[in-house]
Simulated assay, not measured.
Amino acid sequence: MTDTEKVKRSGRPRAFDPEAGVAAATRLFWEKGYDAVGVAELAQTIGINPPSLYAAYGSKRELFARAVAHYAGTQGRFFARLDADGPAYETLISVLEDAARAGTGDATARGCLVLDGTRNCTDSGARALTAEVRAGLREKAHALIARDRPEVADSAADYFMFVLTAISGSAIDGVPLDRLMQDIALAGQGLGAMLGRG
Rank of each mutant, 00 (worst) to 15 (best):
F64W: 02
R119A: 12
I172T: 07
E139M: 11
G58D: 08
L82T: 03
V175N: 03
G188L: 05
M1A: 13
R110D: 04
E90A: 15
A72Y: 08
M181P: 00
F78E: 02
G117N: 04
G190M: 13
D173L: 15
L42M: 08
F16P: 00
G190I: 11
D85R: 10
E151C: 00
I93V: 15
L191C: 01
T2Q: 08
A99G: 11
Q189V: 15
D148A: 13
A126I: 08
G117P: 01
T118E: 05
Y57H: 02
I184W: 05
N120S: 12
L63N: 02
A141L: 06
A166C: 13
E139H: 03
V175D: 06
I93L: 13
D98K: 11
N120H: 14
D35E: 14
G73P: 01
A23T: 09
A135T: 13
A141C: 05
A107H: 10
Y89V: 10
I46S: 01
I172G: 02
D35Q: 08
I48Y: 03
G58Y: 07
I184A: 01
G190E: 10
A153M: 06
T74R: 06
I145L: 04
G47L: 05
M194R: 11
D116L: 09
Y159Q: 09
A131P: 05
A193D: 13
G125I: 06
A24D: 08
D98T: 06
G192R: 05
S155W: 12
F78I: 01
A43V: 02
E132A: 15
L96S: 03
D123E: 03
T4F: 14
E139V: 07
